[in-house]
């Protein structure tokens, strides 16, 4: 009789490619495995990667010049050349190139706003949660004040007052988007600061700075990662609306201006500029939505769907 050994589920798991790439039971390794095990999430990461690559190419000035005429006014999409694949606009410019430059603007805004808002939100939230008392009261007052004014109104007011343009839109959104994250981090730090590991550090004589930033923060960073992906998405959506309302990007190509041109184009049967922008925006935002959900599932199962 030959003995049949049935592999346990652990052994099957350990044999898989993803496990071999990210072995171990650390939180990061587990989260990465859970993210990469879903093909849908991997595809979404690739899509976002392509958009980021376009933005980087735009910065290095490798993107084709979208101002150049490549054909007649409003040519239908055709497969004659890459530039014409999504047709041309009023001035005979390539819709594809315009959408690519618009993608650069969108990515820049998304990342810039997040780069401002995440450090501010995490720091203020951690300080408020850890110290309590007057510092907490001040920070809570600060964000209660800011949320009392409707977001879109405040963003419009700030970017209008700072002068229209890319930088002021970024500053306006960045100076408001930290609030949600700050609340989350504050709540989580309040819970963490009474745990044994914090008490142990205090007894061992660790500095307050060390306790907050090296002991507690790693335990709340997952909130920042989850929020960041949704922040990028919201910043991109808001930019399009702000530009459409006339307080956003005034020079250069933006998805907002392209969508703003769409109603008059549609009436004349020119559907492709709107269709192309809508498709590009949909791909980017859908991917970010899926990545955001997947990150939440991977990093914080308690938060639910």
């Amino acid at each position: 009789m030959t003995e049949v050994t049935i592999p346990t589920s652990n052994q099957i798991q350990e044999a898989s490619l993803i496990y071999r790439l990210f072995p171990g039971e650390t939180m990061t390794a587990r989260a990465l495995r859970s993210l990469l095990s879903s093909p849908q999430v991997v595809i979404c990461f690739i899509i976002v990667g392509i958009f980021i690559a376009i933005a980087i190419l735009g910065f290095l000035d490798f993107l084709p010049d979208f101002q150049k005429r490549i054909g007649k006014s409003y040519e239908m999409p055709s497969f004659l050349s890459i530039a014409q694949i999504f047709g041309t606009d009023l001035f005979g410019r390539s819709v594809l190139y315009k959408v690519m430059v618009g993608a650069k603007t969108a990515i820049v805004i998304g990342l810039f706003v997040t780069a401002i808002a995440v450090p501010v939100g995490v720091t203020l939230g951690a300080l408020a949660g850890y110290f309590g008392g007057k510092i907490d009261a001040f920070i809570v007052w600060l964000y209660s004040t800011l949320v009392s004014v409707p977001y879109i109104l405040l963003v419009i007011a700030i970017s209008f007052l700072l002068g229209k343009g890319l930088a002021s839109v970024c500053i306006a959104m960045g100076s408001l988007n930290w609030i949600g994250l700050c609340r989350l981090v504050r709540g989580e730090v309040l819970k963490q600061k009474n745990k044994e590991y914090v008490m142990a550090s205090q007894l061992l004589g660790a500095s307050t700075f060390n306790i907050i930033f090296s002991q507690i923060l790693p335990n709340v960073m997952h909130l920042a990662i989850i929020t960041a992906s949704l922040m990028v998405l919201n910043a991109i959506k808001s930019e399009v609306i702000l530009t459409f309302l006339g307080v956003g990007i005034t020079n250069g190509a933006s998805w907002g201006t392209m969508i703003g041109d769409a109603p008059s184009e549609l009436v004349n049967g020119h559907w492709w500029p709107l269709a192309t922008v809508a498709l590009a925006m949909f791909l980017l935002i859908y991917s970010l939505n899926v990545i955001g959900d997947a990150l939440r599932d991977a990093l914080d199962p308690k938060l639910g769907h």
């Binding site: 959506k237 609306i241 809508a278 925006m281 935002i285």
Partner: peptide, 8 residues
């Protein structure tokens, strides 16, 4: 449906 812009 959440990924389509309000404007669109």
């Amino acid at each position: 449906s959440m990924s389509i812009s309000y404007l669109v």
